[in-house]
Design a protein around this nucleic acid. Structure first.
Lengths: 155, 155, 155, 155
DNA sequence: TTTT
DNA sequence: TTTT
């Protein structure tokens, strides 16, 4: 047992979240978040920018919050860990997808911005939060080496 | 321009570094670093562990240092950023590989450990460092938005 | 030479920035940023919250940007390093103050929010940026161990 | 509720840990960890180095692990959060001390290094771990906003 | 493929 | 696909 595997992403969602329900009834949310770097190209003296897209997955209560409060364009801060999944394409070839398993989610849009848009809660994942007020941070219970228990996360 | 794209990895190399030289003569180093998580499976009450492998790339002087001082088994701390490259397989299909572009490298093996092993500097990338003493941290000059200049990094 | 000393703060300014000019004409900006944690007190079943205040200092161009674009209430993401300064109080006793030396600054208010308020640029630190458009990220050139040069930072 | 307050320290202990027991019988450990930066002074062309000392506190089981396995000189990776405590000196004047409350601890010395030294477990804080084998990472259970409960941490 |  |  060793190591640190930590990712910090701050950026905007490129699309509405995709929400699924696992066999056991728990929610899974996938979001795609953009970060970008820009610099001046010394040859052309022009500003250049490159955008990186990050696929992030949240589980359970955090997935519910994602589904409730995030939309295309939302700005978020995410802490998580890298996870590479192996799968097979239609030809039976091994393929790999790297994504970020989210551990901490912080919404960064002001309340006014959230309510300005065409905000329409479109799912029923809200369980504990019956008010119309978004939590702005959720921290997943992390696993202590002594009390973490295997769950249904498929990795 | 927006966002934060940061990765922190602390783990051990699974293999010796792979060192290449770019067309312009600059060095590129690839390393594969393992991190692992472990927990107690509450169903079986057994300890379980999952290992994650991270592909990390360093350029220029940092690549040289990687080639000089790191070996299979070396423990390192790395700060970097995620970068997904698109490429085509032999069938012309789009494929994606996510790797970490290293910005900060800190070697964590004690000097005694470095010298205990079958340490054999096997390349000639050392330029500025003629002593036999490994630097233990290297921080790449980061690009200020005003002075970063396009270079030959292929992304 | 060894180690990692990194701080990540995301929060809101409690006051307008304090801007000073050093003897050599370079700008210094101090900001005070709040972060808070909240939880349910299991004894009283009430929500409790504790706020932590972080004193952060920026130099030179970043200090200018702070002075231009940040105000009381602004939300910021900051990466920096801890620095404890020793000083003497009026009784000649040693006193210590820990602050964060900012390396990366990311403004998180939307443009509309920035322009909505009683925004009044009140200083003349802007040098390179003559447009009215705020940069949203600034990354200070970091020092490579080989090319960092002593400057006038008093620590 | 808002914000991120995160510190990452990688360095060596300047002294053996100080271990105390709280009124409720739980352990508290204080360690002092050094990080250093070095650079070339462009005026004198000499190498300069500045060392920063970080006071870090761990509670409960992590405090026990600190007491068992860390010693002066040990190399550690710590993730935690900043916390400034107010207290009064003998003259009744307000004083402030900033320390890092540790959340994650990773020991970075190899087993051989740990056993090579004059290692003498000198306390009885070990509860769950009866083997002589050090865990190398411990992650404190973090508080979900819904399930964190007030404890006796004095802040 | 590492390490514990 | 976002944002600036």
């Amino acid at each position: 047992m060793a190591g640190v595997n930590k990712v910090i992403i701050l950026g905007n969602l490129g699309n509405d979240p995709e929400i699924r329900t696992m066999q056991n009834g728990e929610a899974v949310a996938n979001i795609s978040v953009a970060t970008s770097e820009s610099w001046i190209d010394k040859n052309t003296n022009e500003r250049r920018e490159v955008t990186e897209w990050h696929r992030i997955v949240f589980y359970r209560r955090q997935a519910e919050i994602v589904g409730e409060y995030l939309r295309k364009g939302s700005k978020v801060y995410v802490e998580g860990r890298l996870r590479t999944r192996k799968w097979q394409d239609q030809n039976g070839q091994d393929r790999y997808t790297t994504e970020i398993q989210g551990d901490v989610l912080q919404m960064l849009d002001s309340r006014s911005e959230r309510s300005m848009g065409d905000y329409q809660p479109s799912n029923n994942y809200s369980r504990a939060n019956t008010s119309n007020q978004a939590p702005t941070q959720t921290t997943k219970t992390q696993h202590d080496s002594t009390d973490f228990v295997g769950d249904d996360i498929p990795f």
